[in-house]
C-alpha cells in the first residue's frame, strides 16, 4: 500500500532485495496446508500407478487368473471379479485407462476451446458472435445428455468418447477463456501492443496468455474432474469404455450386484475415482486461495 515515492527517497534509489522464483515457490510450498499436500501426494501416486501399471500390477489387465468372485487375500489381494480376473490388477490398469483418456480429453478441449475463446475475445465482431451462439446452444443441454445422444449415434468406442467429451467440454472452456481474455483485452497494455503493430501470435502468447494462466489452470483442474466423472458415469452406464478394457466406472457396474451381500469390492473403484477428484479439488482450492482469494475476497 505505501508508496515508496516520497520526498526523502528519490526515485533513483535502487530497489530492495528480491527473492528468486524458486525461493518463493519453496516458501509457498512450506505454507501449503495439509489438504493440499495430501492432494498433491495422491495425484502423484495415481500418476506413478498409471505410468508403471504393467510393472506394478500382479496380473494382466484381462487375464482370467482364478475362479469368479474369489474372496480377498491369498493370490488375489482384493479378490477376483465375476470372470475371475484379479481386482487389484484391474484397478491399477484402470488408473492408466481412465486417467489417460480423461487427460487426453481435457487437453483436447483446452486446445480448441481455449484458442477459440481467446480469439473470440480478441476479435469480437461476427467471429465472436458465431462462436458464442454455437456454444450457447450446446450449453443449453446438460453435456451428459448430449454425450449419450452422440454415443448412441456414433457407437461407443474410445476415440468417439474422447472426441465427444472434448467437443462438449470445449464449449465450457471457450466460455471461460473468452471471459478471462475479455477482461484482459480491454486493458491498455493490449491496446498498446496492438497499436504498436504486434502480430496475433505475440498478442496471444506474450500479452494475453500469461495473464489468464491462473484461471485457466484452475479451470483445467475442474474440467479434468468433470471429464473424469463423466467418463466414469458413462462407463458405469455401460456406454463408455467397453470391456475388456479395465476401467473404474465399468468395474463398479460389473461388481455392483455383490453389494447386496455386504461385499465392498464394487465400492473400491468408486472410491478410487472419488479419492482422485477430492485430491484434485484440494489442490485447486489451495491454488485459488493463493492466487486470487487473498486479494479479491479480503
Amino acid at each position: 500500500m505505501s508508496d515508496p515515492d516520497p520526498l526523502s527517497v528519490p526515485p533513483v534509489a535502487g530497489p530492495g532485495p528480491r527473492r528468486s522464483r524458486r525461493a518463493r515457490i519453496r516458501a509457498e510450498l512450506k505454507r501449503a496446508p495439509l489438504s493440499a499436500w495430501f492432494g498433491g501426494l495422491v495425484i502423484l501416486a495415481y500418476v506413478v500407478l498409471a505410468v508403471f501399471a504393467p510393472l506394478i500390477a500382479p496380473w494382466g489387465e484381462a487375464t482370467v487368473a482364478g475362479q469368479p468372485h474369489q474372496a480377498w487375500g491369498g493370490d488375489f489381494l482384493l479378490g477376483t471379479d465375476q470372470l475371475g480376473r484379479d481386482v487389484l490388477s484391474r484397478l491399477i490398469y484402470g488408473a492408466r485407462n481412465t486417467l489417460g483418456i480423461a487427460v487426453l480429453t481435457t487437453c483436447l478441449a483446452f486446445l480448441t476451446g481455449g484458442l477459440l475463446g481467446i480469439l473470440a475475445a480478441l476479435y469480437g465482431g461476427w467471429f465472436d458472435q458465431i462462436c458464442s451462439r454455437i456454444v450457447d446452444v450446446f450449453m443449453s443441454i446438460p453435456s451428459l445428455i448430449f454425450a449419450l445422444l452422440f454415443l448412441s449415434v456414433f457407437g461407443s468406442s474410445i476415440p468417439n468418447l474422447i472426441i465427444t467429451l472434448a467437443a462438449l467440454d470445449a464449449t465450457r472452456v471457450f466460455r471461460l477463456a473468452r471471459a478471462a481474455a475479455g477482461t484482459v483485452v480491454v486493458l491498455d497494455y493490449i491496446q498498446i501492443a496492438r497499436v504498436r503493430g504486434e502480430s496475433l501470435l505475440w498478442l496471444i502468447r506474450r500479452e494475453i496468455l500469461p495473464n489468464i494462466l491462473s484461471p485457466m489452470i484452475v479451470e483445467f483442474g475442474l474440467r479434468f474432474c468433470f471429464v473424469f466423472l463423466s467418463i466414469a458415469a458413462l462407463s458405469f452406464l455401460g456406454v463408455g469404455i467397453q470391456p475388456p478394457t479395465a476401467d473404474w466406472g465399468s468395474m463398479v457396474r460389473e461388481n455392483a450386484a455383490l453389494i447386496s451381500y455386504g461385499n465392498i469390492t464394487a465400492l473400491l473403484p468408486a472410491a478410487a475415482i472419488a479419492l482422485l477428484t477430492v485430491a484434485v479439488n484440494f489442490v485447486i482450492d489451495w491454488y485459488v486461495y493463493r492466487t486470487s482469494g487473498m486479494r479479491d475476497e479480503r
Binding site: 466414469a232 463398479v252 465400492l267 475415482i273 472419488a274 477428484t277 477430492v278
Partner: peptide, 8 residues
C-alpha cells in the same frame, strides 16, 4: 460431495 461420482 461434489468431488465424488453420484453412483459412489
Amino acid at each position: 460431495a461434489i468431488s465424488v461420482p453420484e453412483f459412489f
